[in-house]
Every structure is written in C-alpha cells, then in structure tokens.
Amino acid sequence: MKPTITIEYCPKCNWLMRAAYMAQELLTTFSDEVYGVTLQPSETPGKYSIRTNDTLIFDRKEQGRFPEIKELKQLVRDAACPAKHLGHSDSSTA
C-alpha cells in the first residue's frame, strides 16, 4: 500500500502556501510512490509537521526550522521508497 504524506500547518501563521509548495514538490517527485499528499490545518499554534502515514518525519518545533526541499525529499524517500534515486537531490555518499 502506498503511503500518504500529511503536512500539518498552522493557518494562523500563514503557512498554507509553504505547505502547498512542499506538497507540489513531493507529488512531482513521488507521483508513482505515494498515494497522495494531504494538507491539514492544525489547531495547535505554530505547528508544522510532516508525516508519512503515522510516522513523524519532520517537526518544525523539534528542529527549530523548516525543512529544505532537498532534505524533505530525502526524508520521504527514506521512509516511503528507500530504493528510489533522487538525482541531484540525493545526498552525497562520498
């Protein structure tokens, strides 16, 4: 079963556009590997987290920042489809 990615964001912080941009990038990169990306407005102020199914892969408060797109793609790949090569977005193994 393909995973669903959920981006939970704080609407009062005006983070919808950031979440939509990240969703677009993930859907473009993982169109065959994921079921979909869900944008979920949070009731918790300042919340911005990303999950694959029920597994938390990034939390803004824990990290103290937002993820870079390259980093986010690597996190999703590692959780959802470890064999997928991300091209120039892949982490350097050297």
Rank of each mutant, 00 (worst) to 15 (best):
P3G: 12
P67Q: 12
K70A: 15
E25Y: 08
L26P: 00
T93R: 13
H88A: 03
M22Y: 11
M17C: 05
D78C: 06
L56T: 06
V76K: 09
M17S: 06
T38A: 12
Y35A: 15
R65E: 04
F58Y: 14
P67D: 11
M17N: 02
E43T: 10
F30W: 06
Y35F: 09
L56A: 01
E71T: 15
P41T: 08
A80P: 03
M17T: 08
A79S: 15
L16A: 10
E68Y: 14
D32T: 00
I69A: 12
Q24P: 01
P67S: 13
I69L: 09
L39G: 07
P82V: 10
I7C: 00
E68F: 13
E71L: 14
I57V: 12
S92Q: 09
V34D: 03
G36Y: 08
A79C: 08
N53A: 09
I5K: 05
S89N: 12
Q24C: 00
L75M: 15
Q40K: 14
V37F: 02
K12E: 09
V76L: 11
K70E: 14
S89F: 14
T93G: 12
F58C: 07
D32F: 01
D90C: 06
L16V: 05
R65C: 07
N14S: 11
L27H: 02
E68C: 02
